[in-house]
Design a binder for these strands. Structure first.
Lengths: 313, 313
DNA sequence: TCTCCTTATGCTCACTGTGAGCATTATACG
DNA sequence: CGTATAATGCTCACAGTGAGCATAAGGAGA
């Protein structure tokens, strides 16, 4: 840390501290995971640290530095997610501290053993209402949706709940992760909503453990963005090894979207879409051996928006 | 401006100045426009100013404040676009000035007479290679693409040019506005590329006038984002009056995408998609009177991603 | 009033993509 | 040699889409 002698310092009131936050996602054995760190006995958070104005030439380089320092891993794919700059974001500041603006990034990779302070956490532990692979979580209609409706009787609110949670005639839309988190937060059904008011959340909440600051909101933003992006960019392959079976590919997509897909149709779309090419090799597991595939780079030269399926229902 | 007495100031080297940039888009008589301001005799830029840490509760409110101050208008729809934080962004700073991080936003509205310092500029004057409504601009294949190829003979580079500019077997993809701008910039075909090196751009460049700083890059980002978003969110209606004919709607979409659409099919998609509802009224212009339509809010409750068409070719 | 011009609207047809299933084929394991 | 477990092939119905042809309804002028 650097100190400097100043006598009259002109205090620009546009001066803030930039923080860089990283939502790192991996999928291991059908479990989507996010990397968390726990500095100083606090709640789990995502890797995060201030921009080093002198050394970090770009925000992304600064972010990679923090990820290296806090989790001891290197990430390949990184994209900018969103910049959070609201004054009130559940970040307690001492009076003379600068205002904080956080630039959040989404990173994708294969799970790697991180340093001791970091760990991979299951995304659906943090968002139990998001996993619809087996079935729509009973939690939703038994507890959350009724409580959401009870929270407010306004038409706009009711509409928003319907749309976000696929209630009534609306379909469940995997992409609306942030909408759902926000509504639950506003209805006081998320632990952070209590923390932010200095209160203790009741044990009856079944909406997953709190994360530090607004990190769970940032993760929600990331998951929503990722689910959307899968449909028009071949980012899924950032989460897979060099070669993989089509079932592995499918399970990875399903894990992220939180829904099940029709196997044969999935294969058809992937193969006919030219997203993959066979390696000739095949696996020897469970039943009939499966062919191993690899991502086909050429697809980028053929189709404008290559991605994996997004079923309507 | 505020001054404060300090003796030993701990200089956090994560302290930056946040700037808020606004790309405001409107479509008037089939011309997509962006609002520019020209402070202090410099080049045209977009509305922009520092975050007021004390007063601006959120970044968006700060942005609206600057738009009001610099252009004298109020904007309805605003969404965050991207945060630009690279150290080298063509923003000259005096040695003791803080590093600048710009959070850019995209705003949509109907053209309104702005204050005297501001004016609406045609987007295709700034990006002459982007308007394919009449035909693919000859500029592209006569001048730009050959020069791009001449600039570097690397496979990766050639591929990028093909993909971005729809050369060879690739289709023109309206969304890749930023890719194209970046490639042209890197190949030294954009006036800003010269300015950033302290040189004067040759008059032979036909790639539109320079804007201040990296504002043209930010506008490019905005146009690309907007073109993409049109396909899955009904944002087009932010650019239209309460009621409109289907042809006006189509022309507005075409103006933004920079391509022509098949009229009957466009109508079919819009109407059958439930995006609009007739008002019963009809216009009396040119030929047969057209029915006036309005945006149908209910579509949000019916379809997960309602947007206007995006033709493959 | 009739004709031409212009834009709105209707409708058809071929083809592609997608949702759902049924059927068949390889291997591993008892 | 069965049986369980996956992988693969294939079909069918139907919804969307790209392209056009055809018709309708006003205004402007001859």
């Amino acid at each position: 840390m650097e100190y400097r002698v100043v006598t009259w310092e002109r205090v620009l009131n546009s001066s803030v501290t930039i923080r860089l936050d990283a939502v790192l996602v991996a999928v291991t054995e059908d479990h989507p995971r996010v990397l968390t760190v726990r500095p100083k006995q606090r709640l789990d958070g995502i890797p995060s640290g201030p921009l080093d104005v002198e050394r970090d030439k770009t925000l992304e380089l600064g972010l990679r530095r923090w990820i290296r320092q806090q989790a001891g891993i290197e990430v390949g794919y990184i994209e900018q997610l969103y910049t959070f700059g609201d004054q009130n974001r559940g970040i307690e500041r001492t009076p003379h501290q600068e205002r904080i603006v956080s630039v959040a990034y989404l990173g994708l990779g294969i799970e790697d053993s991180p340093s001791i302070e970091a760990r991979w956490r299951d995304i659906y532990t943090l968002f139990p209402w998001e996993d619809h692979r087996l079935h729509r979580p009973p939690l939703l209609d038994d507890l959350l949706v009724p409580r959401l409706f009870a929270h407010m009787d306004d038409v706009t609110w009711t509409d928003r709940v319907h749309i976000a949670f696929g209630a009534g005639s609306m379909q469940w839309d995997p992409v609306r992760v942030l909408d759902r988190y926000e509504l639950l937060y506003q209805a006081g059904l998320i632990a952070e909503a209590f923390h932010d008011q200095g209160r203790t959340p009741p044990a009856s909440l079944q909406t997953g453990p709190a994360m530090a600051y607004d990190h769970r909101r940032i993760v929600a933003t990331a998951i929503g963005r990722l689910r959307g992006k899968l449909t028009y960019r071949p980012v899924i392959f950032e989460l897979l090894p060099e070669s993989f079976t089509l079932l592995t590919l499918q399970r990875t997509v399903e894990a992220l979207h939180g829904i099940r897909l029709h196997k044969q149709n999935f294969r058809r779309v992937i193969e006919r879409g030219g997203l993959v090419e066979g390696t000739g090799e095949r696996t020897a597991t469970g039943g009939r051996p499966a062919e191993l595939f690899r991502f086909r780079q050429d697809v980028l030269r053929e189709r404008p928006r290559p991605g994996v399926v997004f079923p309507r229902r």
